[in-house]
Design a protein around this nucleic acid. Structure first.
Length: 156
DNA sequence: GCCAACGTTGGC
DNA sequence: GCCAACGTTGGC
């Protein structure tokens, strides 16, 4: 089992949207970055767990835990001319973009803000905290995962 | 809204 | 294959 962190803007798709989907879960679509694509396609497996991270908002941080509910599969929005993430150059016979399905597991006990994560030296090599990091999907080591689960239980 | 950092594009 | 121009991300 592997651990991940996935970023989303809460105004677009946040923990409230995810929770409302319940057991149906939701496709994590629209990713158009090759590094992230590789992780969706080749790295993630059904049953993995991921932190949901709220970005570009008043309080950026980790807000919940979701389950990866499928292996990677081609992202149909790439082939839909009506879709905002339509990619006219992608070929349905040889899909370029992938998604996984995700499912709400639980909210974290509290929002764990970005600036708090930065204050813990043990987390300093997390990809999330690296300078200029722009990946929307990234792996989290078990060490970091477990540490953050402990952090969650403390007061900030 | 600013801007640093990074990815992508396309001319050469 | 280089690299300038441009677009996007995301914290602040």
């Amino acid at each position: 089992m592997n651990y991940w962190l996935m970023k989303s803007e809460p105004s677009v798709f946040g923990i409230d949207h995810l929770e409302a989907r319940g057991r149906r879960g939701s496709p994590w679509d629209g990713v158009r970055n090759y590094q992230a694509r590789n992780m969706l396609r080749d790295g993630m497996r059904q049953g993995d767990l991921a932190f949901l991270y709220h970005s570009s908002c008043e309080e950026p941080g980790i807000t919940g835990i979701m389950e990866i509910a499928s292996n990677g599969r081609p992202d149909p929005t790439a082939f839909d001319p009506e879709d905002h993430h339509y990619d006219p150059d992608s070929d349905p016979g040889n899909p370029r973009w992938y998604l996984v399905d995700v499912r709400f597991k639980r909210r974290t006990r509290r929002l764990i803000p970005l600036d708090e994560l930065r204050r813990h030296r043990i987390l300093s090599d997390m990809q999330l905290l690296k300078r200029g990091n722009r990946l929307s999907v990234m792996p989290v080591s078990k060490t970091h995962w477990d540490y953050i689960l402990k952090l969650e239980k403390k007061e900030s």
